[in-house]
């Protein structure tokens, strides 16, 4: 039972009066709409982040630092429960940070709401429920561009060029597509805002190895256009192969970090996380 009496539904599951479908679960912690001046450093960095869910929740991250440079791919890997997704959510402002800060392009965005971060150039693709299932592919992309006042047709064209299958299926409901195609829609939707940074939470979860390789290829293509990529991955080996920078998280703290190649070559990392 929740402490908030308004959130106590007494286990009621009466669908003739309540509709849980698509209900919001997002917990935003920031309150501000405008960033504060920061200092020089990497393009995007979550610096010395310590925090957990809720004001009184236990700390999940401990002095954790994640950074990515312009046009590079950074990958967060680690065992289950290491706080990989949590670290990414912290960068996106969905975690109560007790210490540390988040900087984007030299501006301090620690206090920004997730929506404000989107406006300032961050694109986020959640792990699940990352598309509008009842809407067509094209409508999904349009909704991605919701905040844009200018003509977004060129961007949509670029997305279709990146993911040709989406052009084919653009009038089909996104919920009817296969797992890999859904992920393409999800990434495409996030790209529609023309973000400077694209954050992907396990984009290859539940897709076949072939589709996974294909998705990684596309992600590299996106990075080549100058967009930084920050990605959480279960498939550590493949992910580190395409990564410019890798972070191995252990119990919410930085375990190892370095270039993807270094980490793949590091015997400790190999033994502990890559299965030898």
């Amino acid at each position: 039972m929740s402490d908030n009496p308004y959130q106590d539904d007494r286990g009621n599951k009466d669908r003739s009066i309540t509709n849980p479908h698509g209900q919001g679960t997002l917990t935003a912690t920031g309150t501000q709409d405008h960033p504060m001046p920061g200092h020089d450093g990497p393009f995007l960095i979550g610096e010395n982040m310590t925090g957990g869910y809720g004001k009184s929740g236990p700390d999940i991250l401990h002095d954790c630092t994640i950074a990515v440079e312009r046009g590079e791919i950074a990958v967060i890997v680690g065992p289950n429960g290491a706080g990989k997704s949590t670290a990414m959510k912290a960068v996106f402002g969905m975690l109560d940070l007790r210490e540390g800060r988040v900087m984007l392009d030299g501006q301090d965005i620690t206090q920004l709401t997730p929506q404000a971060r989107v406006r300032h150039g961050m694109g986020f693709v959640p792990q699940t429920s990352n598309i509008f299932t009842s809407m067509t592919v094209e409508e999904n992309l349009e909704m991605g561009a919701f905040i844009r006042e200018d003509d977004f047709r060129t961007t949509m064209e670029q997305v279709y060029e990146l993911f040709p299958i989406l052009r084919e299926k653009r009038h089909q409901a996104a919920g009817e597509l296969s797992g890999g195609q859904r992920q393409q829609v999800a990434v495409g939707r996030a790209l529609m805002t023309q973000p400077k940074v694209l954050m992907l939470d396990e984009p290859t979860a539940g897709v076949s190895p072939i589709v996974m390789d294909e998705l990684f290829d596309r992600i590299i293509e996106v990075a080549r256009t100058g967009i930084s990529i920050l990605m959480v991955e279960q498939n550590a080996r493949q992910a580190l192969e395409i990564a410019d920078k890798g972070y191995v998280l252990v119990q919410g703290a930085n375990g190892y970090s370095g270039t993807g190649k270094d980490l793949l070559a590091d015997p400790d990392v190999r033994r502990s996380f890559l299965g030898g």
Binding site: H21, G22, Q23, G24, T25, L26, P114, Q115, V118, R119, F124, P126, S129, N130, I131, F132, T133, S134, M135, E139, E142, M143, G144, F146, I147, R189, T193
Partner: peptide
């Protein structure tokens, strides 16, 4: 319409609608 679509989007997936700036 854009507003109408944003309503459908919100109905479908509130969190994602929020992340899309709706």
């Amino acid at each position: 319409t854009r507003t109408g679509k944003s309503m459908r989007a919100f109905s479908d997936n509130e969190d994602l609608a929020l992340l899309s700036g709706i």
